[in-house]
Amino acid sequence: MDLIKLNNVKKTYRTGVTAIQGLNLTIAKGDFVFIIGSTGCGKSTLIKMLYREEKPTAGQIIVGGIDVGKLRNGKVYKIRRKIGVVFQDYKLLPKSTVYENVAFALEIFGLPKDEIYSKVIKVLELVGLKNKIKNYPAQLSGGEQQRVAIARAIVNGPKLLICDEPTGNLDPKTSMEIMKVLEEINKLGTTIIMVTHDINIVKQMNKRVIVLDTGRVLKDYQKGTYAHENN
């Protein structure tokens, strides 16, 4: 079944720049998809439209049965609760501990304390940070900070995890550790879309790869075919 379906999507920013045009795409539930392409080709714009940070100018975007393009501003939270998002710069709260940073995502929904505790500990264990729950972000390495951000993104149990260059600031070894965490999460049933520049990661992971060029799909490699065709 398709989790995401884009129909002839176009995005023109107010500045007149057209970042996405004539884009058709479907992504199946449980899939792991890389989106690659040169800087400025519209990768971030594409995923921003998925979590309704930006609205498409034309066309239709369906995510988990919701017509995201039609969502009014006051209802955006409905789609956000189904999607976890991770960025290159982690976006953690510097004055809160690892535990607080993750628990934050549950507290605003009024869950009971013990339920929050068990959920937070579970995801921190999954990303391998159970022993650092009392640390502050500044006391962690970049890879560890990104793992906190991932933990926060998935603690709600979203259907979809979107990552915009999550390894952009990390060295190759740490990047591969992050990829292992993401693969683990994907195995547990979460669909993952990851934007990246790192061709080595793409080759090693052997997943579906979508190549964008000036706002269009240039090529769509099915699982396992990218490394083979780009030696």
Binding site: Y51, G74, V76, Y77, K78, R80, R81, G84, V85, K91, L93, F104, A105, I108, F109, R152, A153, N156
Partner: peptide
């Protein structure tokens, strides 16, 4: 703003 941005991202409603 950072905190508010994150809240929005993780699905906080306007009231939240």
């Amino acid at each position: 703003q950072r905190e508010i941005g994150i809240m929005r991202l993780i699905g906080a409603s306007n009231l939240n």
